Amino acid sequence: MEHVDASQATRVVGDVVAPPATDTYFQGEPGLIATFDLDYDSIIDFYTKVSWAAVLSFPPFCILSTFACVPCFLSKNVEWKARSQHVALTRDGIRYVREKHKTWCGLPCSDKGKESKTVPYDKITDCDVQEPAGAACCCFINRVLYEVHVDTASSGPGKEGQKMHELELSGLRYANEFKSAVWAIKRGEVPANASMPMGPRAEQLAAAPLQDQMSTHLLTEIRDELRQLNATMRQAPPQAK
């Protein structure tokens, strides 16, 4: 798959550039703002190495898995799982889809059904990027994938004290641009030439003032009224006071 040059991006979210995508999975879907590509080739390469390392590092499992034909389909399972993923920003939130895909030996009876999830922007408390560093599987395999962690108020500690994220995206091609676009939309900025029509939700985001701006404007008006009232009282005759 060819890498897309971010300098050729045409979609703008305020001052944030959303790179053009090659993934057409969400094409024609109502409310679509921007699709973000996953680097399938890098994802497949990394997790194939990790999976083989896990199998070979435990000989008993390696022997048993041979009888179950696991080694024959290990690489295919990684590829089927990786290429089933799709990510987009929509009017309603971050949309993540894992479409129906083959598992195990690839027989129809072992297919895994479609899964989808939408995280609303107003529920997001954090969206951060973890850049690749270090190695996996006893320092044999270098980490090469960017990780995007999306949290909401319901995110919390999971097993072994590790934090559970509302959504984890591994191998997103333009991870930092994705993060910037999410925060821009949360601020109420709408893409100049978004893939969606300017519906009520988009018009509200584009036109409505932010809450802190409304509060500042109201307090400024109250202050000015009080100053005018004080000036009037000072200028009034003593008997009028």
Rank of each mutant, 00 (worst) to 15 (best):
Q211F: 09
V190F: 12
F67D: 01
R223P: 01
F46G: 03
A18Y: 06
M233R: 15
Y121W: 01
H165D: 05
A208S: 07
Y146C: 04
G28M: 04
V119S: 02
A194H: 06
I33L: 15
K76I: 02
W80P: 03
N142F: 05
F58S: 07
L74E: 03
N193H: 10
F58R: 13
K76P: 00
I43P: 04
G158D: 07
L229V: 12
S154I: 03
G14Y: 09
A208W: 05
M1D: 03
D151I: 02
S170K: 11
K49A: 12
I44C: 04
M164Q: 14
A181I: 12
A236W: 12
Y96F: 15
F58V: 13
H86C: 00
I33T: 06
T48N: 13
T125N: 00
G113C: 01
D122W: 14
T103L: 11
W183F: 13
A133M: 02
A236T: 12
T118R: 00
W80S: 06
V12K: 13
N77T: 06
G106Y: 02
K186G: 09
G161T: 09
K163G: 05
M196K: 05
G199D: 11
L38C: 10
I141Q: 14
C62G: 06
V150L: 07
E177P: 02
V16S: 04
V119T: 00
K179N: 11
A184V: 15
A6M: 02
C62M: 14
V13I: 15
A231W: 06
I44T: 04
V87E: 03
N77W: 01
D39F: 01
T48D: 11
N142H: 09
L219A: 14
Y47P: 02
A68D: 07
P20E: 07
S110D: 03
K163I: 03
G158F: 03
R143A: 03
A136Y: 12
R223K: 11
H217E: 12
T10K: 14
P108C: 08
T118D: 00
E99N: 11
S154A: 14
F36E: 04
I63H: 07
V144I: 03
L107V: 01
D212L: 08
